[in-house]
Every structure is written in C-alpha cells, then in structure tokens.
Amino acid sequence: MAVLELDDLSKSYGAVRALRSTSFQVRAGEIFGFVGSNGAGKTTTMRITLGVLTPDTGEVRWAGRPIDHATRSRIGYMPEERGLYPKMKVGEQLTYLARLHGLGAAQARSSMERWTETLGVDGRRDDEVQKLSLGNQQRVQLAAALVHEPDILVLDEPFSGLDPVAVDVMSGVLRDRARAGVPVIFSSHQLELVEAISDRVGIIKDGSMVAVGGIDELRQVGAPRWAVTTAVTTPVTTAGDDDTAWVSDLPGVRAVGSEQVRRAGGAATRVEFETTHEGSEQAVLARATSRGRVEHFGRVTPTLTELYRDVVSAEGSDDSPDDTDGDEATTEVTS
C-alpha cells in the first residue's frame, strides 16, 4: 500500500526554526488531521510537501520514492492563502489549472464540469471568480485542488470560512476521496471536526510533532482518567479541597478536579482522577460506595480538544519569540 512519508523535515527562516525533524506518515485512503497553533509549522510542512518550499533537511516520499516534479503534479493542493485569478472565469480557470496539471483539453473540461456540479458552483462557471461570494470562492478553490483527479490531497485549512452546509459538502468530498484510495492531509483549528472525520491525527508544536496516531491511540497516551459521581446527602462545606481529598490519599491515584452537580433530587459530586497503577481505580470505587450512593463510575475518554490542550501545554508554555499570534491561536482552538 502506498504511503506518503514526511521524513525528518527541518526548515529555518533565518533564526526562526519553523520545522524541527518533523516526521509522519499518511497511508493511502486515510484522512489525516493536522492540528497545531498558528505558527506551529503546519503550512510550512504542507508547502514542503508540494515542493513550493525546499526543506533544509529531510524529504517527502510517496510509495517509497522521493516526490519529484511528476508526482507533485498529481497532488491536489489548497493553499492556506486562497488564490485564484480574480478576473478569470470559474470554468476557464479550473480547466486551465487541470491542463497545467497535465490533463488533456477534453479531459480537463469534463473534469471541471463534474467538480463544479459536485460542489454546487456549476451555475457560476461563466462568472469571474471575484464576483462570487467568499463561500463559493472557497468551493471553487476546492474544485481547483480536485480538478486534476489527484492521487494525493493536501488541504491547508479547507474548512475555514465555510458555512455548515459547505462543511458537510467538504467533509463528504474528503471521505469520498479517501474511499477512492487517496491519502488526505488537512489542517484545521476546528478540533471537533478533525475528530469527526480524521482516521489519524498529528499534533505539531513549535515545529515538532508532539503526538501522531489514531485518536483512540492518542487517548491511551498518559495516565488513564476516570470519573466517579456520588450522591451527596449532607451539604458539603465551602472548602473544595475536601471534595477530592478522599480520592487523592489513595495510593496510585491523583485527583484532577471535582464539581458539584445540582439537580432536582439534591446534589452530587463528580470527581475526576488519574490512576498511575492498574487497578487503583477499584480502591476508589470501594471507598466511593462506602461514602454514599455511586451514581456513575467510569473511564473518561478525552476529546481531541482536551488531548490537544494536554499535549500542547504539557511542555510548558515556552512560546517561541515568533509566536506573536498566540492569543488568537488559543481562542480559535478552544472555541
């Protein structure tokens, strides 16, 4: 099975190290979600894959061979900075791009027709790109990435600025392409979306991959997390420390946090904890039942957003000096 391998990529812009030995693989037919803060190195990685940038070290391979110019023209690319000729008609433009990628005139034309239909912009073929709404321009941009029937898809922020319907169309197209055996790499700040459609995820931070794998695999990273909810018959005192103390003093257990759950029948306390030894959670369960009625006890599966926060904040927040838009990144990620 063909694999797209990004192997030990490094790239510096002057004193700024944008990529440090970044490596990961995307298999044919797999959707790979690529996440990371702004300035973490996603766009640089994608540009290197497309040959738009040359890495300082490392190489990108497809099916075991370094990607050359011929292979590169078989990649469908959606750059982060959207770009089409503003004064060129949609149909003409897509046909031109298909031909630049090596399709014959008739083939290019029929492919343009098919993709404009699939993406719902077939009524705008004779309009100049600049006359389209931003959402439609985005659809044309995706059509530009797909019009030459690429063997590999590299999409930088394909979902940004799309309305919910367009998000569905885009997700559908990515799934469909993957089903056809195309490896798909896409970057996004919308982590729920990444979680929903990716087979595997890579998290990049300061130019290094900090986590790569299936989301289920990533969930296994670090200590298992649990939650126990017990009904509280007597109102707890104001001191919150007491809520977790009964958990924390057990061996191999670390309390993560607690919250009061109020509802019609009274109140309950939910405590989250991590276990460092297998089986420690059983001791917690035993103690919980002795304290009161256990309403819920179970494993907590973190969402990608939580995983992302853990991974990205794990090694401290040593923001590199170039990371000037860090604030923006945080808000986008947590939204």
């Binding site: 061979r65 399709l103 055996g181 195309v182």
Partner: peptide, 12 residues
C-alpha cells in the same frame, strides 16, 4: 482503504 492510485507520470 481501496488500492491506491499509484503515481502516474504519463499525464504530466
């Protein structure tokens, strides 16, 4: 995943 399209050079 279905068998992949191997890179083609003939259309380039």
């Amino acid at each position: 995943p279905t068998p992949t399209n191997t890179p083609t050079t003939d259309r380039t």
